[in-house]
């Protein structure tokens, strides 16, 4: 299944002068690969699982999305968020890790690589937000104001694919659905602090600072962040590689996991 069980360990770490507690999931062994999750929260998937065979995958949970939902109040601005994550990489002594991020996490990863070019070994972004073109508006506001049943078609090319089903099939236990539903909504609220109403922190004007070898992966049929943005990212980052996956929406690692994994492995080889 594209959504898989996490079999690693959880670790808590305080940053930002001790004021912000971050929770990380860590799985695997080998050189460090840091994964930054999308706006809806961290979902452990088969691509991360497979990567953990050759890398130590570090997946920090965004402030507010862990057990204590109030930690989001410790971060006021986008720059504070990025500084907190940079501190985390330093404290964990992750030397030039692979930094990979999806959608909202892709925006974070790209901005970290732009602001701290010397700290990042390789950069992988999957359908990241962070740029804006008037002729290709990103309907994030539509997504966050949708009823639950309206969400899958905005994220998946084929809502019947295994990835969509493994993400959206409700549990027979109503309490799990309540907890999960509220956690998803709150995760959008916490990340929304930094993507609302238009996810543009000026990233386009500083992407030229990225020096890490970069792979830009995009679902060709992404309805949320149109594929034209793949070009917008790659033309600003010297030497960036672009891979567009056909029959794929906004979340390649869930909709086309094998192809996504192959592209990542080839890039990292």
């Amino acid at each position: 299944m594209p959504v898989t069980a996490f079999s690693g360990r959880e670790q808590k770490h305080r940053v930002f002068g001790g004021t912000l507690e971050l929770t990380l999931r860590i799985q695997g062994s080998g050189p460090p690969l840091v994964y930054l999750h999308p706006a809806g929260g961290l979902v452990w998937d088969s691509v991360l699982d497979r990567l953990s065979k050759s890398y130590t995958v570090y997946a920090p949970e965004h402030p507010g999305t862990s057990a204590d939902h109030t930690t989001i109040n410790q971060v006021d601005t986008w720059i504070e968020l990025l500084l907190a994550y940079e501190e985390l990489l330093r404290d964990l002594k992750l030397d030039k890790p692979v930094l990979m991020g999806q959608s909202y996490g892709g925006m974070m990863a790209a901005d970290l690589a732009a602001i701290f070019p010397d700290k990042i070994g390789r950069l992988i972004v999957l359908d990241p937000i962070g740029l804006w073109r008037d002729d290709a508006p990103i309907p994030l506001m539509k997504l966050v104001s949708s009823m639950p049943e309206q969400i899958p078609p905005q994220l998946f090319h084929d809502v019947g694919c295994e990835g969509a089903r493994s993400l959206f099939t409700p549990s027979p236990d109503p309490e799990i659905n309540i907890k999960g539903g509220a956690a998803f909504v709150w995760a959008l609220g916490c990340t929304g602090k930094f993507f609302w109403p238009i996810a543009d922190h000026g990233l386009g004007r500083r992407l030229h600072r990225v020096t890490a070898p970069t792979l830009v992966i995009w679902g060709k049929q992404d309805r949320l962040v149109p594929v034209v943005y793949a070009e917008e990212f790659s033309k600003r980052i010297a030497g960036a590689r672009v891979a567009v996956i056909d029959n794929c929406g906004h979340i390649p690692q869930l909709e086309q996991p094998s192809e996504t994994l192959a592209l990542i492995k080839e890039f990292l080889a």
């Binding site: 939902h69 104001s145 709150w186």
Partner: peptide, 22 residues
Amino acid sequence: IPPTGLGLPGYIERPGVEGLMR
């Protein structure tokens, strides 16, 4: 008014959302 428009994500804290769902 679309029902979601009365409480967009982040407007109500997580325990409040759970309460409303219950």
